[in-house]
Simulated scan of single mutants.
Amino acid sequence: MDRLLRLRRRLKARKPEFRRYESHKKLRLRDKGWRRPRGRHSKLRQRYGGKWSGRILVNIGFGSPKAVRGLHPSGKEDVLVYNPQQLEGIDPTRQAVRIAASVGMKKRLMIEEKAKEMGIVILNPTQR
């Protein structure tokens, strides 16, 4: 597992930042991320001539290993929690807790206290 997490980190460091086709021309498309070109005559979709040669397209080869896909960098599965009762079904060996942003300070402290008793890792603890 640790080997695969290290491999994923190395692969992500080499992965390019995929940009939407012609996003440099339209302000509203600037930072929206990748979208597949779907136009009927799109040169990028057809991979025609020099239109796509310098551009790196999204493809399956840039993916991370299946066993660690979607895991937190610590190697644990990320579980979103809204109240202390949800901590009951969590396995501390393979899962970690992220407290939802909409949870207030009073309930957040209750969740943190209960998680500490149960030995569960909190990914976004309160800054004190």
Rank of each mutant, 00 (worst) to 15 (best):
A13E: 14
E77V: 06
F62P: 00
R20C: 14
G70I: 04
R38I: 13
E88T: 03
N83I: 01
I111K: 05
G54Y: 08
G61A: 04
R55G: 03
K107G: 00
R69D: 13
V68C: 01
K51S: 12
H24Y: 13
M110W: 13
P16W: 12
K25W: 11
E22H: 15
R28S: 10
P84Q: 05
L44K: 04
E112H: 07
R94H: 14
A13V: 01
P92K: 06
R30A: 12
K43R: 13
W34Y: 15
R38E: 14
V68M: 09
V58S: 02
D78Y: 12
R19N: 11
G104C: 04
Y48A: 01
H41C: 04
R98W: 13
L71Q: 07
E112M: 12
A67P: 02
A13I: 03
A67Y: 05
V97F: 07
L109Q: 11
L80Y: 09
G33L: 09
V58F: 13
V103M: 03
Q86A: 01
A100E: 08
P92Q: 04
P92M: 06
R30V: 05
L11N: 04
P65R: 09
Y48S: 02
L109A: 11
G75F: 09
K76V: 04
D91W: 03
L71D: 05
L71H: 05
V97N: 11
H41I: 07
K32R: 15
R40D: 10
L80M: 07
T93W: 12
R28H: 11
R35L: 11
L57R: 06
K43E: 09
K43D: 04
D78H: 12
R38A: 08
P73V: 02
A13L: 09
R47M: 14
K15D: 11
V81L: 02
L11C: 03
R19P: 03
R55L: 15
H41D: 14
N83E: 06
N59F: 05
K15C: 14
G104W: 08
S42W: 07
K15A: 15
L27R: 13
P37M: 08
R98G: 00
L109R: 13
I111H: 02
E17S: 06
I60S: 13
D78N: 14
S23E: 14
D91F: 06
S74I: 06
